[in-house]
Amino acid sequence: MTRKRRHSLPLIVGGTLVGFIALMALISIFWTPYSIQDMTGGRLGPLSSHHWLGTDKLGRDLLSRVMIGARIAIAVGFGSVLIGAILGVILGLVAGFAQRWVDESFSAMFDILIAFPTLLLAMLIVAARGASLTSAIIAIGIGMSAIVARLTRLLVKRVLAKDFITASRASGTSWARIIFIHILPNIWTTLIVTFALQFGFAGLTEASLSYLGLGAPPPNASWGSLLQEAQATVLTSPVAAIAPGVLLVCLVIGMNLVADGLRDVADPTLRRSR
């Protein structure tokens, strides 16, 4: 406790990057410069006061499309982290409490799911439900839940071995109550860091899914589909590829930094005493 670290630099930088993208997403809900379907400019128009980022090969305003892309990235982040967190924490808790072969079967299941490529999982889900943003979110969320579950299992086992759990049981606390007052508070800081990290990766995975046409269908403009559209004309009008690419990098790096910063801030031994 020699140093107070309420605000860490990574948290500020990461928060700014992610905040910028979130702001773009928020604004896009109420307003975009043009409708994403309107072909308002010339084809592959240059950067201008009317079209800040130029236009794409169909003459649609790129800034508007990138803004919608930000909204999709944020929605995918929240949606998949929500699914991954709920499913992962529940499965992890069950596996953490389980013994011997039950525990081992759970671990094996998590490992298989982690080894299973998210793209393949997404293809299966898309085949079953059709290509949509929801399918992408479900696929990413399920893939993520295995990572969360494996971590939760480990954390739960570690906390369960602590004396204070035995002490709490010795005073007659039920398991259900122990989970809420002792186990979850002792593992959530680590989990939050993972959720932040996974939020960024979810955006990246969604971009690859959209790139392959497994994400949100047109006219929805995910960063992945923007990249895919810009691919053919990348030499003549690079901005169309650079803009979504840079934003994607900002999102992933930003969430990584946020995760780093949260780890510093959440460390209870660095917490300020009253």
């Binding site: 602590k162 004396d163 204070f164 035995t166 002490a167 709490s168 007052i181 002792h182 508070p185 002792n186 209870p268």
Partner: peptide
């Protein structure tokens, strides 16, 4: 030290 929950 270990018989008390460190976060409570």
């Amino acid at each position: 030290l270990t018989a008390l929950d460190p976060l409570m």
